[in-house]
């Protein structure tokens, strides 16, 4: 079966599970969003919202975003959503000198990974 999405993620659990369509980046969420933003600017469409779940991007270290494989003219909704997500994340990162997402122990990190994974898995089940 061909995969109709690219899965852009900094969540190691996706790598561990060999998730189809995965493009893994070992980076923070803001950098991940900037990378996705440039993909969107070059014509990929956002399939999932960048701010999935209700875990703020300054709290969780991990986010996963699904974008289209096909590229066309830049999609206005996707471009704007990425701009808003980046601005929102930048503002939250400014709250503390050391962001919250850098402070977690291994158990908390594993939970954050599982929540992020569960959200994307459920999203694909519903939208498949």
């Amino acid at each position: 079966m061909s995969i109709k999405y690219r899965c852009i993620s900094n969540n190691p659990l996706f790598r561990e599970k060999s998730f189809p369509g995965l493009e893994y980046h070992e980076t923070d969420i803001l950098s991940l969003f900037r990378l996705i933003s440039s993909e969107v600017a070059s014509g990929s469409k956002l399939l999932s919202h960048p701010l999935t779940g209700s875990i703020r991007p300054d709290i969780t270290p991990y986010k996963t975003v699904l974008i289209s494989c096909e590229k066309g003219e830049p999609d206005c909704t996707s471009v704007l959503l990425m701009e808003k997500a980046i601005r929102y994340t930048e503002d939250l990162y400014k709250l503390r000198e050391v962001p919250l997402y850098e402070r977690w122990g291994e158990a908390a990190k594993a939970d954050f990974q599982m929540i992020d994974y569960s959200i994307i898995k459920q999203a694909l089940e519903v939208s498949a």
Partner: peptide
């Protein structure tokens, strides 16, 4: 109502509202 996965779900008459 939110329905996005573990710890992010809502139930109506016992049914998860996802989808």
């Amino acid at each position: 109502v939110q329905c996005q996965g573990l710890m992010h779900d809502t139930y109506v008459y016992g049914l998860n509202v996802k989808g």
